[in-house]
Design a protein around this nucleic acid. Structure first.
Length: 365
DNA sequence: TAGGAGATCCGTCAACACGA
DNA sequence: TCGTGTTGACGGATCTCCTA
């Protein structure tokens, strides 16, 4: 892993700790020489945090600072945000920041003014704030989707022993899919279904943009095994390009057009009705039978069946899309947690070294 | 280049939950 | 009880990759 060289933190005359941070780009991301930027950025912050933390510890040991508690408070908040995968608030256009300000400086306001909403790194500029909010809201809803508890449990079981209380990924509530859907509807009423904006534009954006965390299409970061199938990273429009013609052109094509592609089987209700029903009939002919009475019933039943099949077809498509998206979120999360875990292990290791190999002279203090 | 194996996608059915 | 939405399971179609 390539780490940008930065100046180490140092203590200023007023007691503030000066930290030199790299210049973030327009989206608040720190440029990393190569590789996957997001994970490396996260690791970068973790390592910088580790440096700062050790520096503060050393200052404390040497009694060089008198506002240690404040420093640690800021560091703690920094740490929490970093663990949450957030861009720490102290990153501004000015790369020289202070982790401890002279008395009276309201350096806490950076953190306290923020809503406690889990967010992903990057994209936190003012212009993208609303987009971020929508993305994260959608992401959170997906995370809580109870129907995927099974998948979540598998992932969780594989991570037994890892504390993940601060990363914003809570175990889903014991809700049924229907409950979840109802809650969602109560919160934000669904717009009327439209063939062009319901499944295409909205969901495509989600599939391609919602997770700025690395998807590792080329090489796994930090030597992690690639857990995602390549198809999971394919945008929806590419998937749709592989669909059959009636799926790509217009999802609300007339039923007569569907008849050209779907092979219909006799509906049980129709077969049980003891009406003029040919078991060898595929249902297409019945739709064109004229008149009413038994034949009209056949037409009615066939049309109902066609409508139901069409709805279920679309529902299945949407269900699969959500499932893939959810799995993609989980995979991204695994990578983030792996990165966090590595950073914390390194931090623990360094702290152990620092406190287990104390110089003999420092014991007297 | 043909074809076999595996992966992926899609439509359908069935089961379930829930509201009307 | 009925209608509807959701999702697991199943089978067929298609695609991709590898090998002879």
């Amino acid at each position: 892993m390539v780490i940008l060289p930065t100046s180490r933190p140092y203590l200023q005359s007023d007691g503030a700790i000066h930290v030199q941070l790299p210049e973030p780009d327009r989206n608040g991301q720190v440029a990393v020489p190569k590789g996957d930027g997001n994970v490396q950025t996260l690791n970068f912050y973790l390592l910088r945090l580790h440096e700062i933390f050790i520096f503060v510890c050393q200052c404390f040991k040497k009694k060089q600072i008198d506002r240690t508690q404040r420093h640690f408070h800021v560091l703690f908040l920094f740490f929490c945000e970093t663990r949450n995968g957030l861009k720490p608030r102290m990153m501004t256009s000015d790369s020289s920041q202070h982790l401890g300000a002279p008395a009276g400086t309201n350096y806490h306001s950076h953190f306290e003014s923020r809503p406690n909403v889990p967010r992903f790194p990057g994209g936190s500029s003012n212009s993208n704030r609303d987009i971020d909010r929508l993305k994260n809201q959608h992401h959170e809803e997906l995370r809580r989707r109870a129907s995927y508890q099974k998948i979540y449990k598998e992932v969780k079981d594989s991570n037994d022993g890892i504390q993940t209380d601060t990363d914003g990924f809570k175990e889903p509530h014991p809700r049924t899919p229907h409950n979840y859907q109802l809650e969602k509807i109560k919160k934000e009423p669904r717009p009327p279904k439209h063939p062009t904006d319901s499944d295409s534009s909205d969901t495509e954006d989600v599939m391609t943009d919602i997770v700025p965390i690395p998807t590792a299409p080329e090489a796994p970061p930090l030597g992690l095994p690639v857990v995602s199938q390549p198809i999971l990273a394919v945008p929806v429009h590419q998937l749709q390009s592989q669909m059959t013609p009636y799926q790509t052109t217009n999802p609300m094509v007339p039923l007569s057009d569907y008849n050209n592609f779907t092979k219909l089987e006799p509906h049980p209700a129709v077969a049980d009705a003891s009406i003029n029903f040919d078991p060898n009939d595929n249902g297409l002919s019945s739709t064109v039978l004229p008149g009413n009475g038994p034949e009209g019933m056949v037409i009615e039943a066939t049309k109902r069946r066609e409508i139901r099949l069409q709805k279920n077809r679309e529902a299945a498509r949407e269900c699969r899309r959500k499932k893939k998206e959810y799995i993609k979120c989980l995979e991204n999360r695994v990578q983030v947690l792996e990165a966090q875990n590595k950073g914390l292990i390194d931090e623990l290791k360094n702290l152990k070294e620092m406190y287990c190999h104390k110089p003999a002279g420092s014991q007297q203090q």
